[in-house]
Design a protein around this nucleic acid. Structure first.
Lengths: 179, 179
DNA sequence: ATCTATTATGCAACCAATTGCATAGTGGTT
DNA sequence: AACCACTATGCAATTGGTTGCATAATAGAT
């Protein structure tokens, strides 16, 4: 149940609406833990039910009211307890590698295109990470909170770079196969 | 629904029982697509229902009979059609990175231990990959099927190496934070 | 005038994955 | 004699994730 904790972590920063959270899960923390807005809203309802967040409706004219969620004392305790528990290994699920595994039953030209598309996608991620790093984490004095985010981001950056290298190498190897 | 395809891909190699498949998903193809034995059995039942595999019971004395599954013509067509469809990006979900992201609410000593444990786990994976590479893929003349598996394995190897480097760097960065 | 995007929320149905349990015989260890 | 690991299968319950839909107002584009 780590989506719950990821949401609580976001709320330690500042109170947010479901919409704010959904956007955060489309960027920043979403680099490390993906979730859709439906997941976020459902989980928020559960957290409210357990008393880990408190929700206040804020009147807005013209559009639906914002429901702003604040983490409670109990919620912060859950975060701390979670931080001490061991982590699971992220589970691998990559169709592209399965296709390489199944090369005998795959059209090489098509697969090459898919590898190149994937390379572009990782290139885009890398650029996004680098932009954020330069924008938000280039100061000399960083708070502990920011240092943690910077370490995570740095891992993301080196990871993307290496995946790109590996994909390019894979395309090269594919090219050496005589059909 | 890519578990279905991953199973079919395994069965293109040779007919297998659910048990054989579950073990394959604990190793080889499991490096790229994880699945538990319950998932495999359930998916096999579905594939049988759709006529993509044919299942024959083989008598055994002493232990439960083996049910051996063979891919059908229709199953092979599904694999081919799947291989041409675009791949999804694997979805990221890593608690360890979330904890780095939430560094302000985490005990640094505990987190360092978790990073080191994770490093060991990737080290173990790397060793396993290298052992398999030397054992099965070091010949000079490889079939196309084997070349594909080798490319995937090589990507796995470089990926593990880089993750280990990044984790070690992260531990170092953590050490530089004055508590 | 109409269409689309954006802000803001949420239900319902479905599909996938995890966890725990159950069966059942064989062979080896303590 | 009791226990564990291995081969071989599968059900049931729960949790998690995805997809599609729905509402509702505003601002800007066509």
């Amino acid at each position: 149940m780590a989506l719950a904790e990821a949401i609580l972590v976001c709320l330690t920063d500042r109170p947010m609406s479901g919409y704010d959270l959904a956007k955060t899960f489309d960027a920043s923390i979403g680099f490390f833990w993906r979730a859709s807005h439906q997941q976020v809203y459902r989980e928020l309802a559960r957290l409210r039910g357990k008393g880990l967040v408190e929700s206040k409706e804020i009147e807005q004219s013209g559009r639906p009211n914002r429901i702003v969620h604040t983490i409670t004392e109990a919620g912060e305790q859950i975060v701390h307890a979670w931080s001490q528990k061991p982590c699971r290994m992220p589970s691998v699920k990559d169709e592209l590698l399965v296709k390489l595994y199944a090369l005998d039953h795959v059209d090489i030209a098509v697969l090459r295109e898919q590898l190149e598309l994937r390379t572009d996608q990782h290139q885009a991620k890398l650029s996004a990470y680098l932009r954020i790093k330069e924008k938000f984490y280039d100061a000399k004095t960083l708070s502990r909170a920011k240092k943690g985010k910077l370490i995570a981001l740095t891992m993301g950056i080196s990871n993307e770079r290496e995946i790109i290298k590996a994909l390019e190498q894979a395309v090269k190897s594919l090219g050496e196969i005589d059909e």
